[in-house]
Amino acid sequence: MKWFDQLKGDPVGTIASWQDMRWPWALMTVVCVLLVLIAHYVFQVWLYMAPCEQCVYIRFGFLTMAVGGILCLISPKNLVLKVLGYVFAIAGAIYGLKCSVKLSAIHHAVHSDDPAAMFGMQGCSTDPHYPFDLPLADWAPDWFKPTGDCGYDLAVVPDGTQLSSLQEWFINMYNSSDSWYLIPKWKFMSMAQCCELAFGLMLVILVAMAASFLYVRFKRKTA
């Protein structure tokens, strides 16, 4: 594969060239938006899993990254848009990773048999506080207003709701595990851990791209 040969021959230059293309920014934007849509429409609306405080913060982190991707998509070679895009994308990744780590710690504590695990652990609030005091919970409460408990990820089906057989199967699978897991049978990768992986991976790629861009730019100036 041509791109693999380029990456192997000149990894820094190849990675630096990626940010001048639209595909990496489009990929990041699509992934971030898709994860938020799945969280809202599949888990919250279809499977009745109410989002907790850290969950809505994680949504905000993904959407902040998506804003950064859109800025770079407008003109990938424009330095101003590229810098702004990096600021939004990296800030969103760091913020989302921080919230994911906190949610993972809460999840571990509430599912631990050791009472000491809950020591010093703060509960979830239904009054979220977003960066710059953005009133997202007022603007779009269905998306950014927390209504669930951190660390549980259980489906709470309203009385009288008629479920399809597929809905019932998924709800029973997750509720029997006392939480959401990527593989419920083995309790492998909680929702918080999956978000940690997603934010962490994208942050590493963003930092590698930014560092490669700065290195190549500096090298050209000094050549």
Rank of each mutant, 00 (worst) to 15 (best):
F4D: 03
D10E: 12
P11H: 09
V12R: 08
A16S: 15
W18P: 11
R22Y: 04
L27E: 02
T29S: 13
V30L: 13
C32M: 13
L35S: 14
I38M: 14
H40W: 10
V45F: 09
V45W: 11
C52I: 05
G68D: 07
C72Y: 02
K77E: 11
G85W: 01
Y86K: 10
A89R: 07
G92L: 05
K102W: 12
I106T: 10
H107I: 08
S112R: 12
D113V: 04
P115Y: 09
F119S: 13
F119H: 09
M121Y: 04
M121S: 08
M121L: 11
Q122E: 15
G123C: 03
P128E: 00
Y130T: 03
L134K: 12
L136T: 01
D138Y: 05
P141S: 04
P141D: 11
P141R: 05
P141C: 03
F144M: 07
D149P: 00
D149I: 08
C150A: 14
Y152I: 06
V157F: 05
G160C: 02
Q162S: 11
L163W: 07
S164T: 15
F170W: 13
F170P: 06
N172R: 05
M173R: 08
Y174V: 06
N175G: 02
S176C: 04
L182R: 07
I183N: 07
W186P: 00
M189R: 01
C195P: 01
C195M: 14
E196H: 05
G200V: 08
L203F: 14
L203S: 06
L206D: 00
M209W: 00
Y215D: 04
Y215Q: 05
F218W: 08
